[in-house]
Design a protein around this nucleic acid. Structure first.
Length: 621
RNA sequence: GCGCCUGUGGCUCAGUUGGAUAGAGCGUCGGCCUCCGGAGCCGAAGGUCGGGGGUUCAAAUCCCCCCAGGCGCUCCA
């Protein structure tokens, strides 16, 4: 449909002598009215103060010999096009494996996950990683060049806190960490909470933390060693967690390397030279380098460099953003960090040795960060603009989404106190659900279902299937909400496999596989499909053909929920079709072949779509 | 105080950028296997789209004013 719309837009534009952007389409509420409606009479009539109905009639009378269009009818100001169903179906069927979304020029860089390497990942982090990963998959499917980075803040306070906890509270140097029985990042989760309490009570601890922080930035001594070991160990565990959901990366960038490479120092010079920042002489920010930000009609100072000369988080992010956009003259060197079973290589920046590679230098940079960072992201973008790179700044996109909070029921079930209907996740207070725990809980539930349906399967097979179901359930759950919606995480909903869920999509495809398997077993052959007019068939073809539109809009709006919901509606449409029209048991071979082809058409769309959502399809479930 | 976001059946959410009869899932109630997998399908009940004004052929959607909630606005990251 996407491609057809492009063809129609051109043709209609010239037939009616109107600009292409005024050729807008919509879908009629039901297919009896038509298959596609043209809204140009609304747009132009309104602008030129003409009678909409008459204009529509006039337009309709001039629409002759449009490709694939069989009939043009008006319904008031609507101009409804009826397509040649046979022709349309055959083309859709033949090209079903292809996506017709046009790739954009230039390289994309997606940065996501970015979890502080000091404790276990929680459900909030999953939303980030799943969004980022699915957006990566979407762009790849569209044929674009994409690079995925995971930025690791190994010099922040959070790391200093846990270093303090391990070394000073638990007396555990790095070589002892492997002896801890609990999964290390889970152990640190609890320790971090303890450290936070200690910091509130003991001023001496705060002082020690300051020393640790300084050591982390300088990169030398016992503390720095411990910090490096901690960051690396926990980052590796996060990678494992994400791998369970099929999430992979191309590059790890470490904040300490950004500083060591001098990216910040260079950026600092530029910011001063080009007058983006100035030194505040008086006021509360005296001694700081600040940037003037206008907001709500008044100008306020945003501190970029503290009075002690250290860089704030925004400062470092400006330097890093510039590197991502190819605006830095220095570059990292790289080594392989790990090889995924898929064969994909994960690289890491390194300080010594390593080789030069072509990371960064992106046309578009997508920063997947929750909406609370909106203000800082704007400042970073503004700084780059003021440095004299307005076009590059435009390429920097904040892929913003709302946070995940625990529903009151779920929070109380976990023993947390609830004030209102939602409870915010807090690493500091230890309030949250660990990603690993969630995955495990969903896997167990899935395993129970598989056990009851396929007791004959070997144990390993069952586990593998349960893993795929769990991953699908979690990913779909994280993707079905719009970015602007707070996910009120409810454990019962997350554990559900019925209705609008990932497993529902899997189940639909598994059924199709099963039908194809049975067809082979029974030796049923299918000839090339011949179209027969049928409302239900056409509705299915029509819906399946809207996939490319959805992909296009999902990319344009960085909104994966559009795809998630569309796929559900498509799977649902198939299930209705399936219950109404037997395929293998149909006697008439021509009818049977057509139904089978309809299934294949839907299947190919669902396969592409579920791949983007990161949902794997087991053979059975 | 300023800025951003949100308010839609009992609950959780969509709503194609102002279009045709406001849709799903969960929950509730009632149905459906002699047949390709029941993680499915069919049906029913349930809506003053937070409230009030306005803009126009047309408003859940745009503008204004209220009400309620979330987040941000630190020399934290």
């Amino acid at each position: 449909m996407h491609q057809l719309k492009r063809e129609l837009r051109k043709k209609i534009s010239s037939l009616l002598s109107i600009p292409e952007e005024d050729v807008r389409f919509d879908y009629p509420p039901n297919l009896n009215l038509g298959d596609l409606s043209l809204l140009s009479a609304f747009i132009i009539g309104k602008r030129e103060g003409k009678n909409l109905v008459e204009l529509a009639r006039d337009f309709a009378s001039r629409l002759k010999s449009l490709p694939m269009v069989e009939e043009v009818r008006t319904a008031g100001p609507f101009i409804n096009l009826r397509l040649n169903r046979e022709e349309f179906f055959l083309r859709a069927y033949e090209t079903r494996e292809k996506t017709k979304v046009l790739p954009r020029e230039g390289k994309n860089l997606i940065e996501h996950t970015n979890i502080n390497p000091n404790k276990a990942a929680h459900v909030g982090h999953l939303r980030n990683a799943v969004l980022g990963d699915s957006f990566y998959r979407l762009l790849s499917v569209a044929g674009e060049r994409v690079e995925v980075q995971n930025y690791i803040d190994d010099t922040g306070v959070q790391v200093a806190d846990v270093v303090f906890g391990l070394l000073r509270m638990r007396n555990l140097p790095p070589e002892e960490w492997d002896r801890i029985e609990e999964k290390f990042d889970h152990y640190c989760w609890d320790l971090y909470v303890e450290v936070e309490r200690r910091m509130e009570e003991a001023p001496s601890a705060l002082e020690e933390r300051r020393r640790i922080l300084k050591a982390l930035e300088e990169g030398k001594g016992e503390y720095a060693e411990a910090g490096r070991a901690l960051s690396r160990k926990i980052a590796s565990l996060h990678l494992q967690t994400m791998e369970k959901l099929g999430i992979e990366y191309d590059l790890l960038t470490w904040e300490s390397h950004i500083i060591a490479l001098g990216l910040w120092a260079r950026t600092f010079e530029l910011l001063k030279e080009r007058g983006v920042i100035r030194k505040a002489e008086t006021g509360p920010n005296a001694g700081c380098w600040v940037m003037d930000i206008e907001e709500g009609g008044e100008v306020r100072e945003k501190v970029i460099v503290r009075s002690d000369g250290t860089a704030t988080y925004v400062a470092k992010d400006i330097a890093y953003q510039m590197w991502k956009l190819g605006l830095q003259d220095r570059d990292f060197t790289y080594e392989i960090f790990k090889k995924y079973p898929s064969g994909r290589l994960l690289y890491t920046t390194v300080l010594e040795g390593g080789r030069r590679m072509d990371f960064g230098h992106a046309r578009r940079v997508y920063n997947v960060i929750d909406s609370r960072q909106g203000y800082l992201q704007r400042i970073v973008k503004e700084a780059i603009r003021r440095l004299g790179y307005p076009e590059a700044a435009e390429g920097s996109v904040h892929l913003s989404y709302e946070m995940v909070a625990l529903s009151r029921k779920s929070a109380e079930a976990l023993g947390f106190q609830a004030q209102g209907e939602a409870v915010s996740i807090s690493g500091r207070k230890g309030i949250g659900i660990k990603a690993d725990d969630l995955i495990q809980a969903v896997e167990e539930r899935a395993l129970g279902e598989v056990e009851s349906r396929h007791p004959e399967l070997p144990r390993e097979k069952k586990r593998e299937i349960a893993g795929k179901i769990a991953s699908a359930a979690i990913r779909y759950y994280m993707l079905k909400y719009t970015n602007n919606s707070v996910v009120l995480f409810d454990i019962e909903d997350a554990l559900s496999f019925e209705g609008e869920t990932g497993p529902y999509l899997q189940y639909s495809l598994v059924r199709m596989n099963s039908i194809k398997r049975k067809a082979r077993e029974r030796g049923i052959e299918f000839g090339p499909p011949r179209w027969r007019d049928n409302q239900d068939y056409w509705a299915l073809v029509h819906r399946a053909s809207r996939m490319d539109d959805v992909l296009d809009r999902a990319r344009e709006n960085t909104e994966l929920s559009l795809l998630a919901r569309y796929l559900f509606s498509l799977a649902q449409a198939f299930n209705v079709f399936y219950s109404k029209y037997p395929i293998l048991n149909e006697e008439d071979p021509e009818e049977r072949s057509l139904r089978f082809a309809l299934m294949e058409l839907v299947e190919s769309k669902l396969k592409i779509g579920t791949y983007i959502l990161g949902i794997e399809i087991p053979e059975r479930m």
